[in-house]
Amino acid sequence: MTKIVHPLIGPLEYEEESVITFQEGIIGLEENKRWLLLQNPKHQPFQWLQSIDNPEITLMVIDPWIVRADYSLSISPEDQGRINLDHLQEREDWAVLCVVVFQNSLEETIINLKAPLLFNLKERKGRQVIMEGEEYQVEEPLFSESARRYRSEKKGV
């Protein structure tokens, strides 16, 4: 059991087997190879990706399908193969999360839908990929009209 301190969650202990390794690091944060995925019920649907190598480094992340129900992931077989996603059978063995960049105004808060973080939860491996195509931008509004519309429609049912 090892201990680190998260700025919002506070001190936390973790087991070695819960560590997720980003062999190539996360783009721009390459020196951080070992991360924890923190899910706190009080922060849902947001999650935290916490660097173990540097406890000051935390990324706020969210499942892109919560933000855009029609989010379409296009990952080449080679990219999938790099963290053995192609070997996984069960849905709970993998996850996709996108980085949120918080701004003081919610309207300006953005999500990176272009470069999702892929997780092989079974083998505890992760990788950030940049998707090709023009469908998504690196900076998309998190609280977009389409998300708002989707939420209100869902509420209406």
């Binding site: 783009i27 721009g28 944060l29 706020m60 960049v101």
Partner: peptide
């Protein structure tokens, strides 16, 4: 992407 990840931290 690099800039945004650093900004996100």
């Amino acid at each position: 992407v690099r800039k945004l990840n650093i900004q996100a931290v």
